[in-house]
Nucleic acid binder design. Structure first.
Lengths: 253, 253
DNA sequence: CGATCCTTTGATATGTTTCAAGCTTAGTGG
DNA sequence: CCACTAAGCTTGAAACATATCAAAGGATCG
């Protein structure tokens, strides 16, 4: 019944389906149903909203290319960025079941996003338990990352917070096959890094410089080169466990 | 096939089943299967572990009475408490699908906990999609709370953080039918409050006093009386949306 | 009724923010 | 292709919130 619609160009959800399959092996029915989900692809400029806090969500989003971030704004206007998302990730599965979205998601870079009616996603989850469970696992990992970020922001110093962010981004990029672990472009302004770490942009600037001075990283504009991965991991108190990458959980301690 | 086992005394999972049903209406099959889950009830002293970070989880836990908390420890020994849980809540559903637990859960007070083999929970989720989805929703709300705590710790001042904690606890207690919104016992030491808010115990002490001085709360030992709910909500920048209590989401703005 | 854990208080230290301003880069229109 | 503009980055000095150190007073529980 669902027909694939595409505004800009035909799009395949293969990458997302593979990702779900890695969380929980999918049966043929589930795979087919997921592939057949009706997706509207839109190209978004940086800052464009995919979901807005307070919305009654109608669509569920997946990133085809580019980067996105979640955020919440406090009563007095401060922002916290809650996570970064990259190509191949569903960023919105929680809104399949929430009636009102409790945070916003915005494009970080120019981003192609697939908008899928949430009722269609719900239908797949209802009919194919394995698909539902794969999506569940995906949201569980999101949740684990959120907790790690809370720890980062709540109990680590500024240097560690930023080192941790750099490590997480490096590893996720590499795992997703989207870049080199030790040489990548961090698509964030220093202000966005600040809002991810509960700091100010000014302090982020000083800390980045300090990380450079200590020989842990080298930067050129937004390009990050990790010079000393071991020490960066140490300074950032980074462990990969919370990412639940599967494999051995112990790739790097 | 599952038989109910009980170490201390027979226990019913009714409260948990009702909670899941409120997330997603359960069919007769799902209800029966959930009720029939094999549960071992154990009474835990404060501080006793239900799950330990790094464990390969075998059981999934639900709280029958008392309180529990999640926590993570950083590399240099600092602790962040990630959430508080109360009677009727499953605290461990994420471990049904994670192979290694990424954080610990401990009893906060003397607590009766039901230990259910995770394979049994998994089986119910596999066979009864509505049960699986109800559990999924439960973990989604957990995740939403984790994000709110990250915001609390990352972008609010000490006064707001603690006020926010007091509001959340009040509202959840009341909603769960476990206490009065404006008059309850907060089962935490000041050090535990500190670790929930990313502060030191000493500063928590001063802030609690300040909240009293401003006429927002009154305390007697660990009993909390909320004198001015409106202003406490305002100071704590508290909105209930992230709790996804259903109803209207707007009970208090 | 002693011991331990928790709370309270004061003084000082520190990491991070705030304010202020100059500089660089990328984008835009003439 | 240049001039202009806006956004982002960098730097310094001062202010502030919270942490740390130190120690005493209460509560709770064998």
């Amino acid at each position: 019944m669902p027909i694939q619609i595409s505004l800009d160009r035909p799009i395949s959800l293969d990458r997302m389906v593979e990702r779900l399959d890695s969380r929980r092996p999918l049966g043929a029915g589930a795979r087919a149903a997921l592939r057949a989900l009706p997706a509207t692809v839109r190209t978004l400029d940086p800052g464009a909203y995919m979901v807005r806090e307070g919305d009654r969500p109608v669509y569920c989003c997946a990133i085809v290319s580019g980067f996105a971030f979640r955020q919440r704004i406090t009563g007095d206007g401060a922002r916290l960025i809650l996570s970064i998302h990259m190509a191949g990730e569903f960023i919105d599965l929680q809104n399949v079941y929430h009636d009102v979205s409790d945070h916003s998601v915005q494009a970080l870079t120019r981003t192609e996003a697939a908008f899928i009616p949430r009722e269609a996603v719900r239908a797949v989850a209802d009919v194919f338990p394995d698909a539902g469970i794969a999506m569940w696992r995906e949201t569980l990992i999101d949740s684990s990352i959120a907790r790690e970020w809370a720890v980062n922001v709540g109990r680590r110093g500024a240097l560690a917070r930023i080192a941790h962010l750099l490590c997480e981004f490096a590893l996720r990029l590499e795992t997703a096959g989207l870049g080199e672990e030790c040489d990548y472009r961090l698509p964030m302004t220093q202000e966005q890094i600040a809002d991810s770490c509960g700091l100010t942009a000014i302090h982020v600037n000083r800390v980045l410089r300090e990380l450079g001075r200590r020989g842990l990283i080298a930067r050129d504009k937004r390009a990050v080169h990790i010079v000393d991965w071991r020490r960066l991991v140490e300074v950032g108190d980074f462990t990969a466990r919370y990412l639940h990458l599967g494999s051995d959980d112990a790739k790097l301690i």
